[in-house]
Design a protein around this nucleic acid. Structure first.
Lengths: 324, 324
DNA sequence: CTGAAAGCGCTTACAG
DNA sequence: CTGAAAGCGCTTACAG
């Protein structure tokens, strides 16, 4: 069953296909009479324009993609939800692709997107890529520095971490540790450790830092390291929600009382694994961030260059049950 | 910066564009010599085929879509994750669209998809639609009967509910209620109430049913109704994870002790709102279901008709803390 | 095994 | 304001 084409609409009302196209896109002034005729025919034939033709002739897909490590994680699914809303509002569709934490998969996806599958993408990665891999794809990044022309959407990592660490000190912590997974590429996330160190210095406290670059799935090693190398700490600032929930699990197994013996504050705001406790956290405003990502991607697609390269959003402090 | 086209590749190695296309698609026997020549040129020019051309000439997008009420809900994000994996494995991309629980939005999305944006879709809806809205889109449904040719992927609603209700009886419940949102269209979900009623009958117990068709967001009314109309029940079978978490919240506010005074078993397996308790649940195997959805969609796209219209999966009983 | 050509359904200068 | 025509980058009978 072939669908109705623009040619049939044109034929039906005795105009050229160009005219039908112009009516469809409001691209030129069209006489009221013609317009009406065309719209009638469209309705009567139940004509739906085929985007494939449009895409080919305009060299535009009106598709935005998002590349994430996994979809089934609260942080990412909230992000995706926000992107979809924002993209839809601007007439774009959202393609979703997951790399499963594998760089080769990321490359495959980028290559696919560049075949004109998408006009732009939000690329969330922990690996290193050449800017040439993006070519004319309009790429935007979360946290990571991906290239000198690639805008970044991030949070006030420094300020938020400072707030979290200071909060624990105010709540009586004497010895606060920092636990994180160090990004292997330049990233705004690095400011979290810096903020922690600055607060420690300011208070003349000895820092305890376990912050290594690890492969996905190796998070438990970090937590083991924290407990094996150090002792006597009564607070942990955790940079990241996955790590936070793993830490909490470990703490439970060790029968450490939270918050009495140990206080915890995490970054990110989500708690994906254990469902038993609300961790005190600095929540990222993912819906605002998603909206900004879409705005930036579309500006890049349209070659408008009136945007900031670094876009910081404020985190939202949420008191949970892991602090006094 | 125009990208390299098939024409330039053909020119470079002195063959026709048809030959390049055939090499790309392995569509015919090609002499080793020509093949090599073409592949060399492709590599040298860093040629990436443009899917827009392919889509137009083949009248195929190699895109599968999923339409859900919302993305940011564990049930749906798990489903989407499964779909993406399965689609990718078969060479399809995944487009994600959310209806925000609005039928007009669903219609808009369907219309968009039919403009050749997607070849098929998993359509999760609570509303009524005409089959004509789908036209030649290959549609598959979860739970719902959407039309006589539309395959359904669902769970063993009857058996799982029976198992859940009987479990509560075994654990000492004397008076078990059924709480659900009745689908306003024909749906496999209706078998849950039926199973409950059958178990009650078998045990010669008086059924308590609060199962109404409500609008999204009105779930609290159902829970109020349960507590206002009935009393003395010591078990509730809840058909659906959102409802289950709302019920649990209410139960906490009423200071009812779970599981001592009240036991709860839910359908779906996910617990999206309150993070404090594991509800005993019948979990849907969403990854298997997603895989099946993709398989069915692709079969429909290819007009293979060797599939079942009703595809039932077994739920997985998970003992939580809301039963003895 | 392979080339030339038509065709997929649009958009958009160009000319009037 | 509008028509005729070229062009977007592919695929695929057709003919050899």
């Amino acid at each position: 069953m072939r669908s109705v084409t623009i040619k049939e609409v044109a034929l039906k009302c005795g105009v050229g296909i160009g005219t039908v196209s112009r009516v469809l896109n409001n691209s030129t002034q069209i006489s009221e009479k013609t317009k009406e005729k065309v719209l009638d025919a469209i309705k009567e034939l139940n004509y739906v324009p085929n985007v494939a033709g449009k895409r080919l002739s305009q060299n535009r897909s009106y598709v935005i993609a998002v590349i994430v490590p996994v979809i089934d994680h609260r942080y990412f699914s909230k992000l995706i939800a926000g992107l979809e809303l924002a993209a839809d509002k601007r007439g774009y569709s959202l393609l979703v692709a997951s790399s499963q934490h594998r760089i080769e998969k990321e490359r495959d996806i980028l290559k696919r997107l560049m075949q004109n599958e998408a006009d732009g993408a939000l690329f969330v990665t922990h690996y290193e890529h050449q800017e040439s891999e993006f070519e004319d794809l309009a790429i935007v990044s979360i946290d990571r520095h991906l290239g000198k022309d690639i805008p970044i959407v991030t949070t006030n990592n420094y300020e938020a971490t400072k707030q979290g660490v200071e909060y624990m000190l105010e709540r009586g912590c004497k010895k606060v540790a920092f636990l994180g997974t160090k990004p292997n590429q330049a990233s705004e996330v690095s400011l979290r450790e810096k903020a922690y160190l600055d607060v420690m210095k300011e208070h003349q406290l000895t820092p305890i830092v376990v912050n290594r670059n690890i492969d996905h799935g190796q998070e438990e090693g970090l937590i083991k390291e924290l407990f094996e190398k150090y002792q006597g700490f009564d607070g942990v600032f955790v940079s990241g929600c996955t790590l936070a929930s793993l830490l909490y699990k470990e703490v439970q197994e060790r029968k450490i009382k939270v918050p009495d013996e140990l206080q915890i504050v995490s970054y990110d705001g989500e708690f994906p694994i254990d469902k038993h406790t609300h961790i005190t956290t600095l929540e990222q405003p993912l819906d605002l961030m998603a909206e900004k990502c879409v705005e930036l991607i579309i500006k890049k697609i349209n070659q408008e260059n009136n945007f900031e390269l670094l876009n910081k959003f404020d985190c939202h402090f949420i008191k949970g049950e892991t602090t006094k």
